[in-house]
Design a protein around this nucleic acid. Structure first.
Lengths: 151, 151
DNA sequence: CCGCTCTTGAGGGTCGTGCGCAATAGCAGC
DNA sequence: GCTGCTATTGCGCACGACCCTCAAGAGCGG
């Protein structure tokens, strides 16, 4: 059951790094994990545990994602509804996500920093977008909502 | 529904006002609803449906909260984990909420406006904090997290 | 090749939330 | 105050997301 090695440029090295990190922790490099990480790093957008499980066991996927998250290799975000979305921890940072369609884009660090500072001085709260995104509507969904009068 | 500039004491600032609003809609003032609204308005922080149900039926609580939300008397937010939190709609609409303890505070409208503008111009997304709060940590939880090496 | 132990996969459980339905309780009219 | 119409209740169940348990299987060091 060997996965045909696609020529994934940056992703492959990240996945490889993830493999190494796993091994470094005395954890095993199982087929399921390999597959999961491949899928994860190859994806260009956060995936659900179910998507990542593919034909495999969803429970195992959750388990592995938990492990990987513990190692800091993976992170997940929750939009208000629907399953959590998992992404490689490396590249994506703080993001805005569309409540409707789940689309999300990264926020410039300076923007986040400014926001954090503003909210901190105004409320004392420490904004944290690493687990939960900034909620909003993507341009398209916003257009739809506006057109159909939806809030 | 044009609201001039009033900082007026919002509509149903009390359970009694909410009762009236219900009756005005031809809806019945059941004991369950009375209790729910009392609890809701008496609370100093958002409550879960279960808390609001008390000894009563949780399903009914959800149903009623839905109704009340439809009337604009109640609103709810979701933190990533745990049940949704319900609060009287009179509260400020945009808020930061603590991911750990659920505490939430209102954000100044101009702050939200600034944030919205910044994110819009940077990403095209329309930030919307009316249903989902801006995630973060309250001062206390942040202190704890920092102390114990949390994210 | 062996064996120890990490992992898997299936099954089932929990939690949050919504639905259907029969019994009940508001409220209006008499 | 009693009656009847129907909104509402409360229960049981359904469903999705997620996690736990346990026996069987797979990594990896020796």
């Amino acid at each position: 059951m060997t996965v045909p090695h696609l020529t994934a440029p940056v992703e492959a090295s990240s996945a490889a790094a993830a493999f190494a990190a796993l091994r470094a922790q005395g954890l095993r490099l199982s087929t399921a994990r390999r597959l999961l990480l491949h899928t994860l790093f190859a994806a260009d957008r956060p995936l659900t545990a179910e998507e990542l499980a593919g034909e495999g066991d969803v429970a195992s996927a959750y388990r592995n994602l938990e492990v990987l998250e513990g190692l800091g290799l993976v992170r997940h975000v929750h939009l208000g509804h629907g399953p959590g979305l998992y992404a490689p921890a490396g590249d994506r940072h703080e993001l805005v996500a569309c409540e409707r369609c789940g689309a999300s884009v990264a926020l410039a660090p300076r923007l986040v920093e400014a926001l954090r500072a503003a909210v901190r001085s105004a409320t004392g709260f420490e904004v944290r977008l690493s687990h939960l995104p900034l909620p909003g509507l993507c341009p398209r969904c916003h257009a739809n909502a506006t057109r159909s009068g939806g809030d």
